[in-house]
């Protein structure tokens, strides 16, 4: 599970070009949007693509993103429960 979180952080840093960040800079319970990591709506689109590409999870309802992309912990839990690869 912790490996998944580390890999997820690495993927997010790479996919979203968060050049200023290292894996250890992102806390597992830190908010990804708003006051936390400061991601925005374009990043949300990138995260949807990332879930499908790396874990075979296809989000069809935009509302799902709001519930899943809260933090690394929430994302990891959702991936564990729904991954197809």
């Amino acid at each position: 599970m912790s490996d998944l979180r580390t890999r997820l952080k690495q993927s997010i840093i790479e996919q979203l070009n968060l050049e200023e960040f290292e894996v250890e800079d992102i806390a597992n319970d830190e908010a990804l949007f708003g006051d936390g990591l400061g991601l925005d709506s374009i990043d949300a689109l990138e995260l949807i693509v990332l879930l499908e590409k790396e874990y075979g999870i296809k989000l069809t309802e935009p509302q799902q993103g709001k519930e899943i992309f809260i933090s690394i912990d929430k994302m990891a839990e959702y991936i564990e429960a729904h991954r197809t690869k």
Binding site: Q15, I42, L45, E46, V49, E52, K53
Partner: peptide, 13 residues
């Protein structure tokens, strides 16, 4: 490379 799947929306936008 990705056979028209999983393309980055940022680059498109």
């Amino acid at each position: 490379v990705q056979n028209e799947a999983f393309v980055s929306p940022t680059a498109f936008i």
